[in-house]
């Protein structure tokens, strides 16, 4: 196989990986702050994808236009989910958290199945077949837009946490919950905010994903697992790690698609996950827990 072809496949895999990375970033933010493992993350992402599809079908909206709308809607959903359910799980034994969120994932996924049916649905954008030519590379416009937007949203999230007072307060909760309470921070509300933000980011990643793939409810568990794989590779709680892990998985899956068979590509990410869990459980960019 000519080198250019491999390079092209790797590049488009990397761009898709950026969107995976953005979704994983949402997972990582929630865990980093409230230590809750959101097993329903892929389900939220797929809900975001359906949001983009509905807006495209109903209003002819571009997925990029859907981004703020879906983001806001899922921020609200995430906030309510936290107030109604997740709040009770903070500090509970890990297996209880995990199992409750497995239940939430079942409800969301099957809810989507009941609402939209099992068939794949897609968004058609006018620039679907455009491409940029950079040297030997031929990059799909949709992938470039999706990957670029993912970087922008991640940068925005990063700026929020670093530059705003609210973001600093959230980080204070993450560093020392008791200390944050002592200085009078509304820890509960900041947790709800974080869960909302994590869900919004997942939903936005979902909107961007509709540029690249068609959506059906059964994607959700795969995305949840991909999110965990990426976050564990990058290190739970590390923002750079999530994006880098996303690109790594995107690349690995794309290349596995050529070397092995396309249907075997997620085998590679599970193999990577097993390897990282065993060899470096805190991930490539994370710090050891203790």
């Amino acid at each position: 196989m000519p080198f250019e072809v491999i390079l092209n496949i790797a590049a488009s895999g990397g761009l898709t990986g950026l969107v995976y990375g953005l979704a994983a970033l949402g997972l990582s933010v929630i865990f980093g702050v409230s230590r809750v493992v959101n097993f329903a993350h892929g389900e939220v992402m797929v809900a975001g994808m359906f949001g983009a599809v509905l807006l495209a079908d109903g209003l002819g909206a571009d997925p990029l236009v859907a981004v703020p709308i879906v983001g806001l809607a899922l921020f609200g959903t995430g906030w309510l989910m936290h107030r109604g359910l997740v709040r009770e799980l903070i500090g509970a034994p890990e297996h209880r958290q995990f199992l409750a969120l497995v239940g939430v994932a079942m409800v969301v996924m099957n809810g989507l199945l009941m609402a939209f049916g099992p068939d794949a649905r897609g968004v058609r954008v006018p620039y679907a077949f455009d491409a940029y030519e950079i040297g030997p590379l031929l990059l799909d416009k949709v992938r470039v837009i999706a990957g670029g937007a993912a970087i922008l949203v991640a940068a925005g999230l990063f700026a929020f946490f670093r530059l705003t007072a609210l973001g600093t307060a959230v980080r204070a909760c993450a560093d020392n919950q008791l200390g944050a309470r002592v200085v009078g921070l509304p820890v509960e509300r900041l947790y709800a905010l974080t869960f909302g933000l994590g869900c919004a980011v997942a939903g936005i990643a979902g909107c961007l994903m509709t540029l690249i793939v068609d959506v059906h409810p059964q994607l959700a568990p795969d995305y949840t697992l991909a999110g965990f794989t990426i976050v564990i590779i990058g290190g739970l709680g590390s923002a750079t790690g999530a994006l880098a892990g996303g690109v790594l998985i995107g690349l690995a899956e794309a290349l596995a698609g050529i070397v092995l068979m396309p249907s075997m590509k997620s085998m590679v990410s599970f193999a990577v996950l097993i390897l990282v869990l065993v060899v470096r459980p805190h991930g490539l960019f994370g710090r050891p827990a203790r």
Partner: peptide
Amino acid sequence: GLKQTVYGVLLV
């Protein structure tokens, strides 16, 4: 999907 939804609610 309804059956699975009920199981999910039950689990939660």
